[in-house]
Design a protein around this nucleic acid. Structure first.
Lengths: 140, 140
DNA sequence: TGGTATTAGTTGCTTTTGTAACTATCAACG
DNA sequence: CGTTGATAGTTACAAAAGCAACTAATACCA
């Protein structure tokens, strides 16, 4: 019986995912007191523009309760502004504030820095193959 | 500004890790009411033999409070048996029970099945390269 | 010895996540 | 219109994770 945990791809993926996220996570957590879902919501709004919570859910694949809580926290922190929609008062459009935009810029830059540093040990082909593999596994 | 979430390796890794773990997780959860840490502890004991909680912590890289709770739950479920050590009464040796061994066998088999199924779309070289990459990222 | 520092493991408390139920609004159709 | 069903988002409650403080036992060393 030679089956080792390192032979189990989900284990490897989880370990790699944890290791790769740790530093960046402590960055946005330490600097802005943000949670992972908040960073993701911030990213989507900063990258793709204002949208409703439901759109964030759909695009990011995050459950609506998580988004709802992240939005509330980000509102508190003045990272976003909520705009009631006259045509459908159930929805609200989420906009980044100026502050939100600055934080987005900082975190995006930092994310790229982390990514570049982490990938610097690998060749371009390795990285490309890696992305293809992960994208497929993730079902993206 | 072209930075996309899919260009961010930690994001890809997390998505892939989540996707790859989901089904197996619901298997051991549904069938045995086990949590991820419990499965890991079970695996270590089944694969490497009886050891103390501390050894599990070291080998698996899991914090001692998580292991402590997992061990308590597994004891409850009669998956393991705790043996007080005379030479150092702070420690206890953790052994799988017969039931624990059967569950280990079932989950290991199932894990291999999942792994095989998931990897079946990839070539041997791709998988090897993948493992090398992930192992390095994970710092294993 | 005996006092201090370590170590194994547990417990309590706080934060975060998961799940289901809820409110408010809108759509659809008789 | 008005009733029924869907949808956006929130809230309440339970499960799980994280962190710090704690207990009990052992090691170290003056």
């Amino acid at each position: 019986m030679s089956f080792d945990l390192r032979d189990f791809m989900p284990y490897l993926l989880n370990q790699a995912a944890d290791a790769s996220s740790r530093d960046f996570q402590s960055y946005y957590r330490g600097k802005y007191g943000m949670l992972r879902t908040e960073w993701r919501v911030l990213f989507h709004l900063g990258r793709y523009g204002a949208m409703t919570a439901r759109e964030v859910c759909d695009r990011a694949g995050i459950h609506k309760t998580k988004v709802s809580r992240a939005v509330a926290a980000m509102d508190q922190k003045r990272l976003i502004r909520r705009e009631e929609l006259a045509q459908d008062r159930r929805q609200e459009m989420l906009h980044l504030t100026d502050h939100g935009r600055r934080v987005f810029a900082d975190l995006t830059q930092e994310a790229q820095r982390f990514d570049t540093a982490m990938m610097s040990e690998f060749s371009t082909e390795e990285i490309a193959q890696m992305r293809a593999f992960l994208t497929r596994i993730a079902g993206l």
